[in-house]
Design a protein around this nucleic acid. Structure first.
Lengths: 158, 158
DNA sequence: GTTGAAACACCCTCAAT
DNA sequence: ATTGAGGGTGTTTCAAC
């Protein structure tokens, strides 16, 4: 949590929104788009980066074209609720590169992992790697039949 | 689906992996890192972009520092299974910018949406906007207590 | 906040190997 | 595949307003 975040004004907002859509924009283009001088734009980027709000940029890759045809959300319930087990489980999850996202969740399940892989055979390998010697109470895969959209820009507050 | 994807060799692999970690690398740095001339590196990037595998880059923003303190996965079951209703529902989901990801899923539920917002009050507003006049059978929010990691680079096959 | 300028790094395209 | 070179563009930091 970080309640006392630095102020983000309307201009910062538009700046972050633009870069969330396309981080390859040059500073000239960016400055022009949001109606700022290139110089002022640069200073704002510095500030946002120093504040840790802007953390860099990443390539967007078309999963399907890259051969990744299957997305599964793995729901997990554990029998163990001690720290040592939790640490061991997190290390296990981190060791499976097909898992792109991992949450501790509330409700019926304890954890949820998003897993992106080539095929059902790929999923089966990950599943086996995930459960081996972890004594999980229950694991179920929720399969994405169709990814309608993903990685949409965040809606920033204020 | 795209089974007949162009060949991605080891070098392309490392290129995409590097750009998934940091898309702001200059072509000189990138070329040096993967042991290629800047020129050859540039040509590979062109090919990957033309093939639609590499689709650009996006800024990474720290959600919590930007004031987004709540992530919820919304599970949805519908009573309607005709195309007209599905189109209307997709349009509704797209109209809610807090929803960053949307899947049609198999199993007990029909759809799953990932929603990132400021607070419980923000979630409630989205929830109401989502369900209004849609005659859903059942909607439940699975709350992320802790995002252990997310937006990890894709594990590319081969 | 702005403009203008200077120093440097980078991108893209050649030609040659 | 590689190097080298050139022109155009982008970045970063000034000083001045």
């Amino acid at each position: 949590m970080n309640e006392n975040r630095p102020e983000i004004d309307e201009t910062d907002h538009r700046l972050l929104a633009a870069l969330q859509q396309d981080a390859s924009l040059s500073q000239r283009q960016l400055a022009e788009r949001i109606g700022l001088s290139q110089n002022a734009c640069w200073r704002r980027l510095q500030k946002l980066t120093e504040a840790g709000i802007l953390q860099g940029s990443r390539a967007v890759i078309d999963a399907d074209r890259a051969g990744l045809h299957l997305t599964v959300f793995v729901m997990i319930r554990t029998r163990h609720h001690d720290d040592a087990w939790a640490r061991r489980f997190r290390a296990r999850v981190e060791s499976i590169p097909e898992i792109t996202e991992f949450h501790r969740i509330g409700g019926e399940w304890d954890y949820m992992a998003k897993l992106v892989t080539t095929s059902m055979a790929g999923y089966d390998r990950c599943y086996k790697a995930l459960i081996a010697d972890m004594d999980l109470e229950r694991v179920t895969g929720v399969f994405s039949m169709e990814t309608i959209f993903e990685a949409r820009p965040l809606r920033l507050p204020r």
